[in-house]
């Protein structure tokens, strides 16, 4: 690992000052991606700003119509939160499927979202749940936030404060995972909102997380597995690697979406691949 300077501010204001005053800063949240990346030499910040002592970032609270999750909330916290399980059970379930126990004890929602790994789980939840990413300076809708592989709408010197989730009628997440890394080969999040169905897919898209709008339109008309019959994703828009080819991924998206819709229709979320 390259050398770096390390600071551990305790307030958001001090964090932002540090972030804007240095040449090559990086924010350290849970570190479950960043530290392995730094070990490989793929990231080499001059200044590492540890967010783990900023108490303003760990709040998780219920709002009138949903939930606010602070950027430094750990996956384990979201997975076991009574408020999240009550209001948006699919979100708690997704958080409990990320990585493994030890990774969930460290990894954070802010870190996952800012990194925008094409196989990360949280981006699918944010997109399907129509979440808002609240930074130090503005609100960004999930539709605008996820730009491309590892690329987001965040500007240099900008940081995520919290993610705001509106509640929905029902939602769920189904994931076909790579057994060693536990990342999603394909992950599908389906949310039924009063305004309509949203389907977000992670792990599969060659430009990262995306909404499957054809499936949304079909499910708006008929929220049943059969509504997806005949719909197909273009394999050329899918990722392809040693774990799964593009045609296989396109097929998996359809299968998982169908199973999830069926499970949500039956009001049972205990479906596993």
């Amino acid at each position: 690992m390259n050398k770096f300077d390390y600071v551990r501010p305790t307030t958001l204001a001090a964090t932002l000052d540090l972030l804007r005053a240095s040449d090559e800063p990086m924010l350290l949240a849970g570190g479950q991606t960043l530290l392995p990346t730094m070990k490989q030499g793929l990231a080499a910040p001059e200044l590492l700003i540890d967010l783990n002592a900023v108490s303003e970032l760990v709040e998780l609270s219920v709002t009138g119509d949903g939930i606010r999750v602070g950027a430094m909330c750990r996956h384990a916290t979201v997975a076991t939160s009574g408020a999240v399980r009550d209001k948006i059970p699919g979100l708690a379930e997704l958080a409990g499927m990320i990585g493994d126990v030890q990774v969930r004890n460290r990894g954070t929602i802010g870190g996952s979202v800012a990194n925008n790994d094409p196989a990360a789980d949280y981006p699918a939840a944010l997109l399907a749940l129509d979440a808002t990413i609240r930074t130090d300076s503005r609100d960004i809708s999930a539709d605008e936030f996820f730009v491309d592989l590892f690329e987001t709408a965040l500007e240099p010197g900008e940081m995520i404060r919290e993610v705001v989730f509106p509640s929905c009628r029902s939602c769920g997440y189904l994931k076909f995972r790579q057994p060693a890394s536990r990342f999603a080969i394909v992950g599908v999040f389906v949310a039924r909102h009063r305004q309509g169905v949203r389907v977000a897919v992670t792990g599969a898209g060659s430009a990262g997380v995306f909404r499957w709008t054809e499936a949304e339109a079909a499910l708006d008309g008929n929220f049943a597995q059969q509504a997806l019959t005949g719909l197909a994703l273009d394999p050329q828009q899918m990722l392809s690697d040693i774990h799964a080819g593009d045609t296989y991924r396109a097929h998996l998206v359809q299968v998982l979406t169908g199973r999830l819709v069926e499970a949500l229709g039956a009001r049972s979320l205990r479906v596993r691949t």
């Binding site: 570190g31 530290l35 030890q102 460290r106 060693a180």
Partner: peptide, 22 residues
């Protein structure tokens, strides 16, 4: 690479992978 778990210790009583922590 924080996958195998041979380095697990407890930090304030919580299991963590000590290869993914400074």
């Amino acid at each position: 690479t924080s996958q195998c778990g041979a380095c697990v210790v407890h930090l304030d009583g919580v299991a963590v992978k000590s290869c993914a922590l400074l």
